[in-house]
């Protein structure tokens, strides 16, 4: 690599020696890195080593190195320096990039003028996918700007349909513009009748020839009514304070507006529950979002609050300005998805998903339970007689006795008393709500599903089976009370000393009722406690399949026959039974109120009331048909009765 300079031998040797010296100094440099040394330093070093005169040596070195092509001479601030490198003569590195692809990619040949960088590129990265704005062409923007602006008062007075010309009431047609009356406002009449009703026969507007007069300095507005009427004739005077109008007509106006927004073909304002939000401002949720939410609900294995979903999956802070809008968007989107079911109430928006078992135990199918509790919607709900609705609303709690059926299956019929205590459904098509029942006596919590009544189906609560079996017996008095949270309730009972009784139990494996020794620690109503000593024949009741138990008349006949006292003959049996005993026994097989039982007894052909003893009834079953006749009837039955799905609404089909 080193050059071979043609120099006098002594100069050549000197240059070679200095080159080796400088390369030794820069031994660790890169091969093309410059190695610099001043002439003074070189002369001083060699003068000391060889004992020669320094000034003379400087001249010799300068001549030798200047003639050698491996060295470059440079003068900095009057000082002579020589530069070389490990590869010989120093050549400055050329960093010029000969590739132009990057430049051609990023720099357009004819760039468009921009006012704001955010027009060209997004300067922020959104956390979630967002709806791209829809740009409207300049043509339509100009059309919009040219459109006449409609004032509010006009919008009200002349809304959608072309309005007929209405003359001012009790005013004569003005003869000339200058004579037109000043703007007047109707005096508030004691009963503000709709203006249109006060009109005389419709008179055409006649323009009289105006006499020549000086033009009025300011155009005078025709008088305008401030009383408006709704479609049902309700008059509203807009001069009254808004608070007064809201107090008197707020609900009606809200109903009119809600209908209007619902039927808006563009759906510009959308609704969830009682809240409204612009459709264009909704945050977007894609399929991945929905799958993520569904997986999370299944992972947690219980319905989740919307706020939990947002906090855990989207890390959205409630203090963020767009939090409520994002929350509305989530609820609105999930409500439109068939994989999600809203099971919340006002103040606690809970979401369940397909495949999530909300409450344990599927012992009673929803379709059957809806029919069993249908007596509640048929007018046989006597719960307000025990505790008035007003008292329940004021006290915030409801107290009731447990029947055997309720205790066994952990189910409570949703009667008027419970409905007054529990929150109503938030959405019009809401099927169920999930509440949390807390036992302050045992520090346990239960998820309770409330199934709302629908059509001819009754409602009920389910999910308390474990609590009932662990702490209570049939006949116990329970109290359900509201708490500060809309979906949290307390369930309590009165504790008592230990008692042991032989009580009715249901052996599910053998599918039969039996008496067993049970110890319990709660206060009970002795009349409702199904003990062997008092209701010794209850274990003879047949544990019908749930589908059969829907037939209340059949159950009543069976119960009367089992627990009634035989007062007839074997050929013509006749059973005497009291209403109180019937109530206890009937509620072993299925729920039923006393009012319902009375109605069944009154319309049952084989039942008769004892006129001397109130509450005592006789059951005299009709002579049984022969076996052949029964078989014939059974053969005809399938032809007469339509299939189950045709007989009942499809609401609970998926539960069957």
């Amino acid at each position: 690599m080193t050059a071979a300079p043609t120099l006098p031998t002594d100069q050549q040797a000197l240059a070679e020696e200095i080159y080796r010296l400088m390369v030794a100094q820069g031994a660790l440099f890169a091969v093309d890195t410059p190695i610099r040394q001043t002439l003074a330093n070189l002369a001083a070093f060699l003068a000391r080593r060889e004992g020669r005169d320094r000034a003379e040596l400087e001249a010799v070195i300068d001549a030798a190195l200047s003639a050698d092509s491996r060295f470059t001479r440079e003068v900095v601030d009057g000082e002579v320096r020589f530069v070389t490198s490990r590869q010989g003569a120093y050549v400055p590195r050329d960093d010029t990039d000969t590739h132009s692809f990057k430049q051609r990619l990023h720099e357009p040949e004819h760039p468009l003028p921009i006012d704001d960088i955010s027009v060209v590129v997004s300067t922020s990265r959104p956390a979630i996918t967002t709806v791209e704005p829809v740009y409207i062409s300049d043509y339509w923007q100009m059309q919009l700007a040219a459109a006449p602006v409609e004032s509010e008062a006009q919008a009200v007075a002349a809304p959608e349909a072309p309005a007929p010309v209405v003359e001012p009431v009790s005013e004569e047609a003005p003869a000339a513009p200058v004579a037109a009356p000043a703007p007047v406002v109707e005096e508030a009449a004691p009963e503000p009748a709709p203006v249109a009703l006060e009109m005389p026969a419709p008179a055409p507007v006649v323009e009289e020839p105006a006499p020549p007069v000086a033009p009025a300095p300011r155009p005078v507005q025709p008088p305008r009514s401030t009383v408006f009427t709704l479609s049902d004739g309700t008059a509203i005077d807009l001069r009254r304070p808004v608070d007064e109008i809201m107090a008197e007509h707020g609900e009606l106006l809200a109903q009119v507006l809600a209908e209007r927004l619902e039927h808006d073909p563009l759906q510009r304002i959308v609704r969830f529950g009682r809240k409204y939000y612009p459709e264009g401002s909704l945050a977007s949720f894609g399929k991945n979002d929905l799958r993520k939410i569904r997986d999370y609900i299944l992972e947690r294995n219980e319905p989740l609050l919307d706020t939990e979903i947002i906090a855990d999956l989207y890390y959205h802070n409630p203090r963020q300005a767009d939090y409520e809008g994002f929350r509305f968007s989530l609820n609105y989107r999930l409500h439109r998805e068939k994989d999600f079911e809203f099971v919340g109430v006002e103040g606690a928006y809970l979401w369940a998903t397909r495949g999530l078992a909300i409450t344990s135990g599927k012992r009673v199918k929803a379709a059957e339970m809806g029919q069993i509790t249908s007596y509640l919607v048929e007018g046989y709900d006597d719960s307000p007689e025990l505790q008035s609705i007003e008292a329940i609303r004021q006290s915030g709690n409801v107290t009731r006795l447990l029947t055997f059926f309720e205790w066994e299956y952990g189910v409570l019929p949703l009667d008027a008393g419970l409905a007054a205590l529990l929150p109503p459904p938030l959405l019009p098509d809401q099927r169920s709500a999930v509440l949390r029942f807390e036992s302050p006596q045992h520090y346990t919590t239960y998820l309770v599903e409330v199934r709302f009544p629908a059509g001819n189906r009754g409602g009920w609560l389910q999910g308390l089976e474990e609590f009932f079996h662990e702490h209570l017996v049939p006949g116990a008095l329970i109290t359900i009370a509201r708490t500060g949270e809309p979906n949290l309730f307390h369930i309590t009972y009165e504790e008592g000393p230990e008692q042991s009784e032989r009580l009715l139990t249901f052996d599910e494996k053998k599918n039969r009722l039996a008496f067993a020794n049970v110890s319990f620690y709660c206060v009970v109503d002795e009349d409702q406690l199904p003990t062997q000593s008092r209701y010794g024949r209850l274990n003879r009741l047949k544990a019908f399949p749930m589908g059969e138990r829907r037939k209340a008349e059949l159950m009543l006949e069976h119960v009367s026959e089992i627990i009634g006292d035989q007062v007839g003959t074997p050929a013509e049996p006749r059973y005497a039974v009291t209403l109180d005993d019937l109530y206890v026994a009937f509620n072993v097989l299925r729920p039923g109120s006393r009012a319902y039982l009375k109605a069944l007894l009154e319309r049952g052909e084989d039942f008769s009331a004892d006129e001397s003893t109130p509450g005592l009834y006789y059951y005299a079953p009709a002579p049984r048909a022969s076996t052949e006749e029964v078989e014939e009837e059974e053969e005809e039955l399938p032809e007469e009765r339509p299939p189950l799905r045709q007989r009942y609404s499809s609401r609970y089909d998926e539960d069957e």
């Binding site: 509010e152 703007p183 001069r239 808004v242 809201m246 707020g250 809200a254 507006l257 009682r274 809240k275």
Partner: peptide, 25 residues
Amino acid sequence: RLWTDTDLVRHYLEILSKAVREENE
């Protein structure tokens, strides 16, 4: 016009009342 629940109705009534008031003045 429906502007950040009955709140929508109230807001619109306020707009109308204001328009009526201004016209009377």
